[in-house]
Amino acid sequence: MAPSKVSVKLLIETKGRKVLFAEAGKDFVDFLFYLLSLPLGSVVKLVREESMCGCLSDLYESIENLNEAYVQENQNKKSVLNPTSQLRVSGIPLLLSDHRESTTREFYTCPSSRGVGPNFHGGGHNYMSDVKNMTCPSCQAKMTNVWSYVSPTAASTGTVAEGGGFVKGVVTYMIMDNLEVTPMSTISSLTLLNKFKVKDVGALEEKVVNLGADEVLKLLKASLECKTVLSTVFLGN
């Protein structure tokens, strides 16, 4: 299982109540990068309970309430309301308990698809869908035969492998208040302190915070609304 909490160290300018930057490891950076691969429908589903601004949550709810009689036979509301990320990267700590992707994923083919059904040794079609009961473009039959995709994490112990995720481990990363990510270094830290015109080092405070599902939802919501995400989420600005 992915860790339920991820630790991040914040450097806070106490007088201005602002997070100058955060220090984090591979797990948090992998998660931030993963957010960019989430379909819009998944983002709306996650943050609409957090009083998301705008009308996308209303659009989402109207689709939920739409009677199936108005939906095309070869379409499915699930593909819009519960889309899955097309980016399949192993070892990412999703942190979102309601959005954990299974290590297996089902795909569907028609009865005449190659490899299944009566045409196993020849003929058949190559069409596949991740939504059940879609209509085969070739024979017009319903795509109901199940194939299972197994992700690279299925046989793992649940820990983040060194080669998994997006970025390399054994490196500390710097995350700015607007979520820009760069490798951490002493020079980069000093450069930033100069950029922020920090003269009183005593006014700086280090604070370690632990992110779980609740904090991540707030972070995701704030990233859609402002460019001071860390300060907003952890300092209540």
Rank of each mutant, 00 (worst) to 15 (best):
G122R: 07
G123I: 06
H125L: 05
H125F: 00
N126T: 09
N126W: 10
Y127Q: 11
M128F: 07
S129Y: 00
D130A: 05
D130K: 04
D130P: 05
D130I: 05
V131W: 00
V131K: 03
M134G: 00
T135I: 12
T135H: 11
C136F: 03
C136L: 04
P137Q: 01
Q140D: 07
A141S: 14
A141M: 12
A141G: 03
K142M: 07
M143I: 03
M143Q: 02
T144I: 11
N145A: 13
N145L: 08
N145Q: 12
V146H: 06
S148R: 14
Y149R: 11
Y149C: 13
Y149T: 10
V150E: 05
V150I: 11
S151D: 03
S151T: 12
P152S: 15
T153K: 14
A155V: 09
A155Y: 07
S156Y: 01
G158Y: 02
T159C: 08
V160R: 09
G163Q: 12
G164W: 06
G164A: 12
G165P: 00
G165W: 09
F166T: 05
F166W: 02
V167T: 00
K168R: 09
K168G: 11
K168Q: 13
G169C: 06
V170W: 02
V171G: 01
Y173A: 13
Y173F: 13
I175A: 11
I175M: 07
M176H: 08
M176W: 02
D177K: 04
D177R: 00
D177T: 07
D177G: 01
N178H: 09
V181S: 10
T182N: 15
T182F: 13
T182W: 10
T182Q: 15
T182P: 07
